[in-house]
């Protein structure tokens, strides 16, 4: 087939994505250099780097960046480590495997707003929540999760959503593991740990890369869980970049500063993506 036709077939996707990327991004760049507050229309003079200075010196900036990274890394570690261990443990035939699979994957389909509401109210409420009831039954003081450990609460919610995904991907991948190889190793006297370390882990390298990549895309943008449960508080304790920028733009109407923040978020994502796409790109066959 002619090159021109193949190009023509790709054109709609490529052009639409290009437009989707370039127009808003250049608008963001433009807004970030002018004074632009929705409450004071018409005073849009050029201010240079001022918006960036404002954003970076905002008291919420440092907490937001560190919270974003802590959230990303904690959830990645929890889901990958627990995911690998749990999937290796349940990767044998047992009674009711199909039902277990269905139960395991369910949290992945729960929408983030519902996820946050269930955990905030029914699980973590310090008086009526299930956790409070468990602590009380054990004779312990119930913990007010959302105000004492806000970021950890968000990490728990997000991990609950993504752990099932990791388990399911790993279980699926393990099913293609060579069982003869495992048996041969067992014959030669390899312990369970050795098999796990030298056969299972290398076999999972590629699925792990994929899980890390996909989760990163979604974890850098966690928003609804925070919006619904902690509202970024108390103080800035559970504010991440996405929430901070939302706060600037739609609550304080400062488009200029929010745009500067948006560009910073793009920069951060690019730094993460630079390493990630490289690492993962090798693992994906194209």
């Amino acid at each position: 087939m002619k090159r021109s036709i193949t190009r023509l077939l790709m054109a709609p996707s490529v052009i639409m994505l290009l437009v989707w990327m370039i127009i808003p991004l250049s608008m963001t760049i433009y807004f970030s250099t002018i004074r632009y507050n929705l409450l004071y229309p018409g005073q849009n003079n050029f201010v240079g780097w001022m918006n960036f200075e404002f954003f970076i010196t905002d008291p919420g900036f440092i907490p937001a960046v560190s919270n974003t990274l802590i959230l990303l890394l904690s959830v990645l570690i929890i889901t990958v480590v627990l995911g690998v261990m749990l999937s290796a443990l349940i990767d044998k035939p047992f009674f009711g495997q199909g039902i277990v699979r269905v139960l395991l994957i369910s949290p992945f389909f729960i929408m983030p707003t519902v996820n946050a509401l269930i955990w905030k109210n029914m699980m973590m409420n310090p008086v009526y929540g299930i956790f409070a009831w468990i602590s009380q039954s054990l004779g312990l003081q119930p913990i007010d999760w959302l105000s004492s450990y806000p970021l950890m609460s968000v990490i728990i919610m997000v991990s609950w959503q993504w752990l099932p995904f990791a388990i399911l991907v790993f279980v699926t991948a393990l099913q293609s593991q060579d069982s003869e190889q495992k048996e041969a190793a067992q014959m030669d006297g390899a312990t369970g740990w050795h098999i796990f370390r030298y056969l299972t882990i290398p076999h999972l390298a590629r699925p792990i890369a994929v899980v890390v990549m996909i989760e990163t895309i979604f974890l850098l943008a966690v928003f609804a869980e925070i919006f619904v449960s902690t509202g970024g508080g108390p103080g800035y304790d559970s504010t991440n970049l996405a929430y901070l920028i939302y706060n600037q733009a739609l609550l304080q109407y400062d488009v200029g500063v929010a745009s500067a923040g948006g560009l910073f978020a793009v920069l951060l994502a690019n730094i993460v993506a630079f390493f990630l796409i490289r690492a993962v790109g090798k693992n994906l066959t194209v």
């Binding site: 808003p24 850098l220 951060l268 796409i277």
Partner: peptide
């Protein structure tokens, strides 16, 4: 092209929230 497409997913939504909202 494929990797570029994937990288547009890496563009965080907050980065373009303001312009999209205004548009």
């Amino acid at each position: 092209i494929l990797l570029w497409m994937l990288s547009t997913k890496m563009l965080p939504a907050v980065g373009v929230l303001v312009p999209i909202y205004i548009l």
